[in-house]
Design a protein around this nucleic acid. Sequence first.
DNA 1: CGGCTCACTTGATCTAGATCAAGAAATCAG
DNA 2: CTGATTTCTTGATCTAGATCAAGTGAGCCG
Lengths: 189, 189
Amino acid sequence: MTDLEQYLQTYFDFDQTELGKVAAFFKPEMLKKGDYYLRTGRSCNKLSFVQSGLLRVYVELEDREVTQWISTNGYFITDLSSLVFDKPSRWNIQALTDTAIYTIDKSDYNQLGRYIPKWPQTEKLFIAHCFTTLEDRVFSFLSMTAEQRYNILFESNRELFNQVPLQYIASMLGMTPETISRIRRKQLF
Amino acid sequence: MTDLEQYLQTYFDFDQTELGKVAAFFKPEMLKKGDYYLRTGRSCNKLSFVQSGLLRVYVELEDREVTQWISTNGYFITDLSSLVFDKPSRWNIQALTDTAIYTIDKSDYNQLGRYIPKWPQTEKLFIAHCFTTLEDRVFSFLSMTAEQRYNILFESNRELFNQVPLQYIASMLGMTPETISRIRRKQLF
DNA sequence: CGGCTCACTTGATCTAGATCAAGAAATCAG
DNA sequence: CTGATTTCTTGATCTAGATCAAGTGAGCCG
């Protein structure tokens, strides 16, 4: 079983035949550090799976950048509103390190239902899962302090903190790098 | 065409026959002011459409309540993670006023695909739309001031501000009622 | 090895928005 | 209509976290 199949299996309830079929649509690709997977305004006609490396999802404002998310190995990456609704994509997605991904393009993606009968159900569960993740995130902004938000991310994704410049993590948590630095210091005692 | 069909049409690309079939599954219900549509911890085995009135989605913390969302007429309401994944629901949903809804129960909901061939596709688009709405909301917390968040909600949903106590709106925007009051005052000039 | 460039930390100060407290308005029940 | 309750406003004060400004240190490349 390939890495990709292995990971697909952790997300989706597929049997070996289905795994093989789905995985066959994904083509390996490499991004060099700094390469863009996607640019704001372009159409995102693909969905990818991160095998290794780091992809940062962000927007450029006039005076600063806002990081929305960082995808590490084992995550999928795309701009959903662009992929599904054909809208210009809202995010830039850039490789923070050399990154290995598997990519399925939109036309293949949209055909998956023909080959995998339970694809529509699977896809629904997948998007619903993404929805509830964001729901939690909204809730964290409504109800938690910076320190609490930091702790939750840290507990759930420790590796991230060794691999990614603090400023990006701070931005996706809605705080400054200085604040994270102070939270860390405080927690030493 | 009933109210419900009319609204379904604004969300979904159904023809008249499909509209009729889908609408037939929804049963009208009335909630009195203060009634609960759903309680934290219970299973949410239904999806509803708000015809009139107001439903507040919130969580009780030890020391306060956090309002996640308020559904007005024309919105759907459910706890998606509970409906789709059978988890205990995370939110309380309570009627702020007498409220008229149309409800489809989970077993019927899960059968829709049998009667409406394009239901799976439609459902996917619907959930994806909800996802991007939350994505915008997360982005608003990462990049905007209280005043900017207030303005966006106010522009997109003016009626809400006449109908709902300020404290609930404040909570769903992640600020206090006093802050909204001051933003308003400031904007008089 | 020494000089650059980033990333991170730390301190000093500032500020958006929270909290606390008191009135004023509006809404509601009898 | 009247008193009670809830909601909204306004002021005074406080604080979490931002901003600004120096350092410190760790890779990296010549």
